[in-house]
């Protein structure tokens, strides 16, 4: 008889948060799994949060630059 994997409240909440912050465009989608693991383990640092935000800003800026370049062409 295999043991049923129990989900903890922490893990459930972590998944909800990870989904919401990605959907809000604050954290890159590519970082969702990493963020989820850190939320569950409680190891997300101030630097991690800042990095996610900066990556998303950079990605947004790159995207808008590309869009502008395409529009100019």
């Amino acid at each position: 008889m295999t043991a049923k994997v129990k989900t903890t409240p922490n893990a459930t909440l972590a998944a909800l948060i990870a989904d919401e912050v990605v959907q809000s465009g604050l954290v890159p989608t590519a970082k969702r799994e990493e963020l989820l693991a850190k939320l569950i383990a409680g190891t997300a640092t101030a630097e991690d949060w800042r990095l996610y935000v900066e990556l998303e800003i950079a990605a947004s800026e790159a995207e808008s630059s590309n869009a502008k370049a395409n529009a100019d062409q």
Binding site: T8, P9, N10, L13, L39, I40, A41, G42, T43, A46
Partner: peptide
């Protein structure tokens, strides 16, 4: 606690709050 304990998220939230405060 086992139903509402979310220490992992809380620790990460505290780190996020620290990031906001520092910046």
């Amino acid at each position: 606690a086992k139903f509402i304990d979310v220490q992992g998220v809380e620790a990460s939230e505290n780190a996020l709050a620290a990031a906001v405060a520092t910046l």
